[in-house]
Simulated assay, not measured.
Amino acid sequence: MALKPSASGVAVVACNTCRHSAEVRDDADGKRGGARMVEALRQVAADDPAFASIAIEEMPCLFACQDFCTVHLRAPDKVGYVMGRFVPGEEAAQAILEYARAYADSDWGQVPFKQWPQGVKGHFITRTPPAGFVVE
């Protein structure tokens, strides 16, 4: 494994090796939940030009294995978020991308709770400060 360059703006980085759920790793076709989540995110983003500025990226293992189907939302100079426990599919992808759009419009990554799509509520695992900053 090695590092590779990624998007410089707002990005949703999905773990492509995540389990489908706490109980199930692969689906009936032998695909991991994370791989299905990547597919769903890319499909939803491709179908809606409102998400064109959000990069969909993937990598193996975000080390949040207990929380399955995890994504990391990040952007330069903004607080980042790791979210998980999603059912991989269009509904979750839509909610994640709607949140990412609000996040992109925020000053430093904080989205007011009233703007959160229902599909992300209860899915936050952690927030991460951007390099050189902490939240007051």
Rank of each mutant, 00 (worst) to 15 (best):
R85A: 06
A55V: 03
C15N: 02
A22V: 12
L3D: 12
F63N: 15
V13L: 06
A131I: 12
H72Y: 08
M59K: 09
P112C: 11
Q115I: 11
R74Q: 15
F51W: 08
V38E: 00
E91P: 02
H20E: 07
V87L: 08
Y81D: 01
G30Q: 10
G34W: 02
E57M: 11
R127E: 10
E39K: 11
A11V: 03
M59C: 10
K121Y: 09
E39R: 11
G9T: 04
D105H: 11
T70W: 03
I125N: 04
S106T: 13
R74W: 06
L62V: 06
G33P: 02
V111S: 02
D26G: 05
V12H: 01
M37N: 03
V120T: 07
Y99L: 04
K31C: 05
E136F: 11
L97P: 00
A45P: 00
S106D: 12
V38R: 01
P130D: 07
A131F: 12
F113H: 13
D29E: 15
Q94L: 13
L62K: 01
E98W: 01
P112M: 12
H123W: 03
T17K: 07
D29Q: 14
T17A: 08
V120C: 05
E58T: 07
A7H: 08
C15M: 02
P130V: 08
D67F: 03
Q66C: 10
A93Q: 09
I56H: 00
A14N: 00
T70I: 10
S106I: 13
F51K: 02
D47C: 10
V82F: 09
A46W: 07
I96H: 00
G89R: 05
F51M: 07
T17S: 12
Q66A: 14
D48Q: 09
D29P: 02
E39C: 04
E90H: 15
P112W: 12
D48V: 06
M83D: 01
V134E: 12
L3V: 09
I125F: 08
R42E: 15
A45Y: 01
V10Y: 01
Q94H: 13
Q66P: 05
A50L: 12
W108I: 12
G80S: 15
Y81R: 08
L97M: 06
M1H: 14
Y99W: 10
M59V: 09
E23T: 02
M37S: 02
D105E: 15
S53A: 15
A64P: 00
P112N: 11
